[in-house]
Design a protein around this nucleic acid. Structure first.
Lengths: 113, 113
DNA sequence: GCGTCTTGCTACATATATTGTAGCGTATTG
DNA sequence: CAATACGCTACAATATATGTAGCAAGACGC
């Protein structure tokens, strides 16, 4: 883990090397709490501690790590006084997950296949 | 990790307890390689080894773990002779990620903000 | 300018998850 | 019987996440 977050040449997401953006994106999103964070910010900005509370008290260590990654990726920004919120990119990305909510509802009733 | 995959009371995804399906889903998808696996199966079934090859030689240990989870979740199935493929649910889920591909392309060109 | 909040964030030891390499048992093919 | 490919597992090394505690900075009343 880099000591200074914004170092290490722009964003160093695994899969960036392949030149396939979708891989970089899937790798970033496929890290624990990343999807959850984006999801929890859907209603508006949250302070780091509010975000933690809403994320089952996830440890601040990893939350901070993910928030840094998401900030580097341009999905999240820290507005002083407001807390963490989604950027334009973040909201755009979130749009892709909205249908997931309804899907999850249907999927959760799958026992009786 | 459960020795017998299909044991442990239906599906034991973190967040299931909350009764919010979206949490269970986000948790499942937010595990390393999960999103990638679903993505790589978009074109049709792959054998375990073909899948591994296409996933940057990810270790079979974790691939097997994820495949088991995805099978329990009902997104993936193993067809003898065919390999691993998406189920109806899996394809349905994948639909939600297709727009992500084009999004990733746009997002990857974000340097010059 | 003292206490007392809350903020974003970090240290550090412990637990858990992932990686990488090797290989098993089975089936299929020649 | 090789030779091959399959799904899958063991196991040690490494990377990542967890949980608890706490720091420094800013805002508030006093």
């Amino acid at each position: 883990m880099p000591k200074s977050p914004s170092a290490a040449g722009k964003h160093s997401v695994r899969g960036s090397r392949t030149g396939r953006p979708i891989m970089a994106l899937l790798d970033l999103l496929g890290r624990r709490w990343t999807l959850r964070i984006i999801w929890e910010l859907r209603g508006g900005a949250l302070t780091s501690r509010a975000l933690r509370a809403v994320c089952d008290q996830a440890s601040p260590t990893i939350l901070q790590t993910r928030l840094t990654e998401l900030r580097e990726a341009g999905f999240v920004e820290l507005a002083p006084g407001e807390g963490y919120g989604l950027t334009g990119w973040g909201k755009d990305l979130l749009e892709n997950f909205v249908p997931l909510h309804r899907f999850a509802e249907r999927w959760s009733k799958r026992e009786e296949d």
